[in-house]
Simulated assay, not measured.
Amino acid sequence: MHPIFLRLGPIEIRYYGLMYVISFVLGYFIVRAEARRRGVFSQPDDVLDLFLVVIPLGILFARLYYVAFQWDWYRSAPWEVFMIWHGGLAIHGGIIGGVVGLLIVARWKRVPFWRLADAVVPALILGQVLGRIGNFLNGDAFGTPTNLPWGIVFPASSPAGATYPGLPLHPAMLYEALGNLLLFALLWKLRTRPAKDGFLAATYFIGYGAVRFACEFFRGDALWLGPFRAAQVVSVLLIMAFGTWLLVGRLWRPAHAGPTILP
């Protein structure tokens, strides 16, 4: 773990933030290419407008979601609410903010919401891969103690090391990064398949729900909803909702399939 990428006097550039910047840059080019291929936007600047709306809302909701579940701690240190470089962005909150942003842009640009979502989700899951690498370098989103040979002892200065000093932990953030990378590969392969609007987005929500549900068993900093892990509750709801829509709507079929011509 090495959280600081570069220090220039009082200015610090952390890997945590750097990974997000890289994901935004890569995501911009992926979304631009996918939006053009799907015929979503008519102007090149539309993608930039999309990012200017979605990214701030995603970060804001990701932070609010995390703070809401940890309010007992933030109540005693309210200034920490604004210090996102210390960690504390919940992806489910970020997804909520992203969906709100997509709804705004879809209405603003007068484009089909689910077609726009299909253009965005490959970039989103790739950004999540890089985000989890940032978590690793920052020492947050960590796992529970383990005796497995790949267990990692994090420095005491990190959130993981402060919670479990001197103990080897599951690299839960890397487990999720690997699962997200596999999901990205699947979405990238399916993106050119003729299907109804929303097929790729539904596949993303189902796939990420499954990845997060499994990885949450190893998390040592889980957010709790009563006796249940909040991320697992949300993941189950996502899988059920989008799985039902995928099956009932038969989203994998082309939207305008022509009649079958027999010889």
Score class of each variant (00 low, 15 high):
A117I: 06
A117F: 07
A117W: 01
A117Y: 02
A117P: 05
A117R: 01
D118W: 03
D118F: 02
D118V: 02
D118M: 06
D118S: 02
A119K: 01
A119Q: 03
A119N: 01
A119T: 06
A119F: 04
A119P: 11
A119G: 11
A119R: 01
V120N: 02
V120F: 11
V120M: 09
V121D: 05
V121C: 05
V121P: 04
V121T: 13
P122S: 14
P122I: 14
P122R: 12
P122A: 15
P122W: 14
P122K: 13
A123P: 03
A123G: 12
A123I: 03
A123T: 02
L124V: 13
L124N: 00
L124R: 02
L124W: 04
I125K: 05
I125R: 04
I125W: 00
I125Y: 01
L126M: 10
L126K: 05
L126G: 05
L126R: 01
G127Y: 07
G127C: 11
G127H: 10
Q128E: 12
Q128Y: 11
Q128C: 01
Q128K: 11
V129E: 09
V129D: 09
V129Q: 13
V129N: 13
V129P: 14
V129M: 12
L130D: 07
L130P: 11
L130T: 12
L130S: 08
G131A: 08
R132S: 02
R132C: 00
R132V: 05
I133A: 05
I133W: 15
G134D: 06
N135K: 01
N135P: 14
N135S: 10
N135W: 08
F136W: 11
F136N: 00
F136Y: 13
L137I: 11
L137D: 09
L137V: 10
N138H: 14
N138I: 06
G139W: 00
G139M: 00
G139A: 03
G139T: 00
G139H: 05
D140Q: 08
D140G: 06
D140L: 09
D140I: 07
A141C: 13
A141L: 15
A141T: 06
A141I: 02
A141W: 12
F142Y: 15
G143N: 10
G143F: 04
G143E: 08
T144L: 15
T144H: 08
P145Y: 13
P145F: 12
P145K: 07
P145I: 07
T146I: 14
T146V: 14
T146L: 12
